[in-house]
């Protein structure tokens, strides 16, 4: 049985990188004595995959991973026994039984929503807020993206699905698919640059609130959270 788990990551756990989080969950499955399925072969590993890695320093209320189980005593007991072995900063929020033919979390992800706030609790500068409407109204928003190999120009406008701003926070829903993933800080940097305001990314806290899959027909986008398919078990 394929189960999708939704969890939150906060507190000091934001300093734990993706691979270490994977190790943490592998050990947690054993501590909680979850009857998880193992791969075949000489060094079997748990069948577990994450929707999308979360950057170090980022808080999330909407992380997902898929696991395969041999058996389960039901959703409530599954969530409780995992939460019992979590450390402060990781919390299991939901679990759903996936249809057998469901795509895995990683290939399902189409979008993610974020909030960006100031770490010191301060306000977003007035110049930035007042420039925002014109900034987001542009036909294209060009940024320079540095990859390992080269530097390239990229228009991020088509990948921004929602944008909001007030003095407390900037909120975004952006493309998170493997082909067009946009890091939220790229948008924020572009906005501050547009407004002509100096800015240190380390002053800002990113919060990922949700990850979505696209169940729309054809070109019509219809985003629903990754745990909205599947059923209770």
């Amino acid at each position: 049985m394929k189960v999708r788990i939704k969890f939150a990551k906060s507190g000091v756990m934001v300093y734990i990188g993706h691979l270490d989080l994977l190790r943490y969950f592998q050990k947690s499955m054993r501590r909680a004595q979850i009857d998880i399925k193992y791969s075949e072969g000489f060094s079997p590993h748990q069948i577990m995959s994450f929707a999308a890695p979360l950057g170090v320093g980022v808080i999330s209320n909407g992380e997902y991973m898929d696991v395969e189980l041999n058996s389960s005593e039901g959703k409530a007991s599954f969530i409780d026994s995992l939460n019992e072995v979590m450390v402060p900063g990781v919390k299991i929020l939901n679990a759903v039984l996936l249809p057998d033919k469901a795509k895995n979390a990683m290939s399902s992800v189409a979008a993610a929503s974020y909030r960006i706030v100031r770490k010191d609790g301060g306000k977003i500068p007035e110049e930035v807020i007042s420039s925002a409407d014109v900034f987001i109204g542009q036909n294209e928003i060009m940024i320079t993206k540095e990859t390992k190999k080269n530097v390239m120009e990229l228009d991020i406008k088509p990948h921004i699905y929602q944008f909001g701003i007030d003095s407390e926070e900037i909120s975004l829903k952006v493309d998170a698919s493997s082909a067009g993933n946009i890091k939220p800080m790229l948008v924020v940097e572009a906005l501050y640059r547009y407004a002509g305001v100096d800015f240190d990314p380390l002053d800002m806290q990113i919060i990922r609130d949700e990850m979505y899959m696209d169940i729309g027909e054809g070109d019509e986008r219809e985003l629903v959270s990754l745990d909205s398919i599947g059923e209770d078990f």
Binding site: V12, M13, V56
Partner: peptide, 22 residues
């Protein structure tokens, strides 16, 4: 945390300094 968020994001392997382990 004894170290500020900025320091923790700057150093190699911040997990060395945060405690909170199982």
């Amino acid at each position: 945390t004894a170290l500020s968020d900025k320091i923790l994001l700057k150093v190699e392997k911040p997990a060395r300094y945060i405690g909170n382990e199982i």
